[in-house]
Simulated scan of single mutants.
Amino acid sequence: MSLLSRERDLSAYSEYPFDKLLALGNPQMSPLFFDIDVLERYYLDPRYRFDWQDYSGSIHCHYDENEKPLVSEEDEIFLKTFGLGFTKNQQRLAVVYLRYLKDLTKEHQAFWLSKQSKKLDNSVVREYYDNTIGGNWSFTHSYLVLF
């Protein structure tokens, strides 16, 4: 058990699992893996802008002409970046760094947590890793259609 988990009051994070991981000292840029269908909720909902380019994307809600979100407060999200990953058996996964999951509302944190991959030995697509961690921009063609 770490010093943070023993000494820190984590009660404020009970409904925010990804905030709690950060409060426990997990690295901000830890890749977390999710079943690819976690993205379907946003892709199919016209209230969200779902951007996808090759191996990475972003999600945010649309706003009206008065800059008010078209969704309720608990659904107002902005996911700056997510990427593509694979299991060791080549099943597609969504990858998000812990730092960006912290910005989700508690409702969306619970949803993403329910879709977290239980599989081991997952990997991030090399180009996404190179872009986000290595700082080397890769230009490639799309790997595959998500849905």
Rank of each mutant, 00 (worst) to 15 (best):
N89W: 06
L32E: 01
K118Q: 12
W137D: 12
Y129S: 05
N136R: 14
G25F: 09
Y16M: 08
L44N: 15
C61T: 09
Y43H: 11
R49G: 06
Q28E: 15
S123T: 15
S14W: 03
L146Y: 04
S11R: 15
S142Q: 14
T81F: 02
V71Y: 07
F139T: 14
M1C: 04
K88A: 14
S72G: 10
F18G: 01
Y43G: 01
L39Q: 02
S114V: 01
Q91H: 07
R41M: 05
E107A: 04
D103R: 11
S142Y: 06
Y16K: 14
G134S: 15
D19C: 14
N122G: 06
L101A: 08
Y16W: 11
D121P: 05
L24G: 12
D64I: 07
F34Y: 13
Q53P: 01
G57T: 05
D19R: 14
K115N: 04
G135V: 13
Q91I: 06
V38G: 02
G83T: 09
S72P: 00
P69E: 00
H141N: 15
Y129H: 12
I59E: 03
L79K: 02
F34C: 03
P27R: 14
Y48V: 03
N66H: 11
A110E: 02
S11P: 06
E15S: 14
S58N: 15
L39R: 08
T132H: 15
H108S: 01
L98W: 03
L113N: 03
T105A: 02
Y100I: 02
R41T: 08
F139W: 14
L22W: 04
N66M: 05
G135C: 13
R6A: 12
D121Y: 09
M1H: 07
D51L: 10
N122H: 13
W112I: 02
N131M: 12
F82L: 00
D19V: 04
R99C: 08
P17L: 07
F86S: 05
V95I: 06
R47T: 07
R49K: 11
D9M: 09
A110C: 00
V125G: 00
R6D: 13
D35H: 06
N66F: 08
L70H: 00
E107T: 10
F34N: 00
G83Q: 08
Y55V: 13
V95H: 04
D19E: 13
I59P: 10
E107C: 05
L4D: 10
P31M: 09
Y42R: 06
Q91V: 06
E76M: 06
T87H: 08
